[in-house]
Simulated scan of single mutants.
Amino acid sequence: MEALLRVSDTLKAFRETRLSALRPPSEFFDHHRLSRPADMNQATSRISYNTRYFSGNYGLIVAALGVYALLTNPLLLIAMGFLVGGFAAINKFAPEPMQVGEHVVTQKSLYTGLFVIGIPLLWLSSPLSTIFWIVGASGILIVGHASLMEPGIESEYAQVQDSV
């Protein structure tokens, strides 16, 4: 019950901090504000402002790409499910050593078996290439959007508040 309360508090804090920063789709996809930056300084200032302003939307993009990567790599999904499910099952059903025939099975031996099967399965599913794909794809999308999107008029007021 305590774990459920912690998860509930964590989700509430996540919703209050990250999801409150979400901008509406009409603002995020406003094609009237798209333009090519004049030079690298302008692109850098746009990226700096827009990554803060659209941080919730960019986080949602990274999460969506992560879910897409998991769904398109079934072996990785199976390996993650096996490892996470194995940890949960061992913690729930085998907290104490048990006698099976003439052998005593401990949590340590169960974890060893889980790792002996799970780690090679995870290695075959190429998690590093998936992580690099997520980082690369989200980086290109976020930097591309942030550099092409002109900051709104509120960005001028933000610069005035920073200098005061």
Rank of each mutant, 00 (worst) to 15 (best):
A3G: 10
L5G: 11
R6A: 15
S8I: 12
S8G: 14
S8W: 11
S8C: 13
T10I: 12
L11T: 09
L11D: 10
K12S: 14
A13Y: 13
F14I: 13
E16R: 11
S20C: 02
S20G: 12
R23Q: 14
P25M: 02
P25F: 07
F28R: 06
F29T: 09
D30A: 15
H31I: 10
R33E: 05
S35Q: 06
P37N: 04
A38G: 11
M40K: 14
A43C: 09
T44W: 14
R46D: 03
I47C: 06
I47S: 04
Y49F: 13
R52L: 15
F54D: 00
G56K: 06
G56N: 06
L60Q: 05
V62N: 06
A63Y: 15
A64Q: 10
A64R: 03
G66H: 07
V67N: 10
Y68N: 13
A69F: 08
L71F: 11
L71C: 09
T72N: 12
N73W: 06
P74Q: 11
P74N: 02
L75H: 07
L76N: 00
L76P: 00
L77D: 04
L77Y: 03
I78S: 09
A79V: 00
A79C: 04
G81T: 09
F82W: 07
V84K: 08
G85P: 01
G86H: 06
G86D: 05
F87Q: 05
A88D: 14
A89E: 04
N91H: 12
A94G: 10
A94R: 05
A94K: 01
P97G: 00
M98Q: 12
Q99W: 04
V100W: 08
V100P: 05
G101R: 01
G101K: 01
E102G: 10
H103V: 13
V104P: 00
T112W: 11
L114Y: 00
F115D: 06
F115T: 08
L121F: 00
L122G: 00
L122S: 00
S125N: 05
S126F: 11
L128R: 09
L128T: 10
S129L: 10
F132L: 13
G136F: 04
S138E: 06
I142W: 04
I142A: 07
G144R: 07
H145A: 04
S147T: 08
L148C: 08
M149W: 05
E150Y: 04
E150N: 11
P151V: 02
G152L: 07
Y157G: 15
A158M: 07
Q159G: 10
Q159M: 13
V160N: 01
D162P: 08
D162S: 15
S163G: 09
S163C: 10
V164W: 15
